[in-house]
């Protein structure tokens, strides 16, 4: 049994958890901002895919990784703006629009990728992000090589968590976001523009989804494949609920899921697969559904989630 443990819990295991958690943390924070403002964004799965594609393509054509990241973020913002146009400005139903945005974005991603790169037997790849060890910190035993010898985007995700909490809880804009998500009527009376705030939150969410997509195609896989996102957007939807719409808890949920996922990968690789790996992949979804049933009495979800705001309707 101890041999099994040693095989699983190496330094590399900790590093793998951090790497798996990074795109989930970006995506979860992005979805959280959107939902805190009262807008469920089911477009996340497709938006991440489209951003992974545009970022990869920009890097592949220009050779610049950071230009790719920028393009991915801009793509995410644009798709966020599109979702906000439908759900916030026109007040259309959020869940159906979200599915529409996902179908549209993933279709567009596949279409443009095939148009630009054609059908190749070996999918084109790029030289993705390399690990960037932070001096001194990376020398700390165990923790150092796992946390401080990572891709630049990983450090950005680590910084993004406290930053998101600060923005949401400590800034006037964060207060506006929470107000329009909880009680848009009151926010409107207090002079906060519900429409503008929701647009901003959904667009910021899109930018973070863009970073998630960029990480997948430019640091983790260094290629764009049709399965590059493979349900990570839906995982983020679950993690936001599981993390009770809080940046810290959501990021913690991402880390927990990454731990389970990394464990599953290790067990598969070491041939210890008595339990099918799919059982692990199912866990976040089952946990979230159970958590929703347990939490429902506490009503932690933003009150105005899924509800469009029209000023004239009193």
């Amino acid at each position: 049994m101890s041999a099994v443990f040693e095989q699983i819990f190496q330094v590399g295991f900790l590093a793998a958890i951090i790497r798996i958690a990074t795109p989930l943390a970006f995506a979860t924070l992005g979805e959280m901002f959107s939902e805190r403002a009262g807008v469920l964004n089911l477009g996340i799965e497709g938006i991440m895919l489209l951003c992974a594609m545009t970022g990869f393509t920009a890097t592949s054509l220009s050779g610049s990784l950071w230009l790719g990241v920028l393009v991915a973020v801009l793509t995410g913002m644009l798709m966020g703006a599109l979702h906000a146009l439908f759900t916030v400005a026109l007040g259309l139903s959020q869940h159906v629009c979200g599915i529409g945005v996902t179908l549209f974005s993933s279709g567009l991603a596949y279409f443009l990728y095939r148009l630009i790169f054609g059908q190749q037997s070996v999918p084109p790849s790029i030289k993705g992000f390399q690990t960037l060890p932070i001096p001194v910190l990376s020398d700390i035993p165990v923790l150092g090589p796992a946390v401080f010898n990572q891709f630049a985007l990983v450090y950005m995700a680590i910084i993004a968590i406290p930053l998101a909490a600060f923005v949401l809880y400590r800034t006037p804009w964060g207060l506006s976001v929470r107000m329009v998500g909880e009680n848009p009527r009151a926010a409107d009376s207090a002079g906060v523009s519900v429409i503008a705030t929701r647009f901003q939150a959904v667009i910021l969410g899109g930018a973070l989804m863009g970073l998630a997509g960029a990480f997948l195609s430019m640091a983790q896989f260094n290629a764009f494949t049709f399965g590059v996102v493979s349900g990570r957007g839906w995982v983020a939807i679950a993690l936001v609920v599981f993390g009770r719409w809080d940046p810290w808890r959501s990021a913690g949920a991402a880390l927990l899921f990454a731990f389970v996922d990394a464990l599953q990968l290790r067990m598969q690789a070491s041939g210890l697969g008595h339990i099918p790996y799919e059982a692990f992949l199912m866990l976040p979804f089952i946990f979230t559904i159970v958590a929703m049933a347990v939490m429902s009495r506490n009503a932690v979800a933003p009150s105005a989630l899924l509800k469009p705001f029209r000023r004239e309707e009193r």
Binding site: G231, V235, E278, M282, M292, A293
Partner: peptide, 18 residues
Amino acid sequence: FKVDDVVSSLLLNSVIYY
């Protein structure tokens, strides 16, 4: 339990798929 059906029905897709 007054659980939102949009999210729960969506997440079940992944459970069934796996």
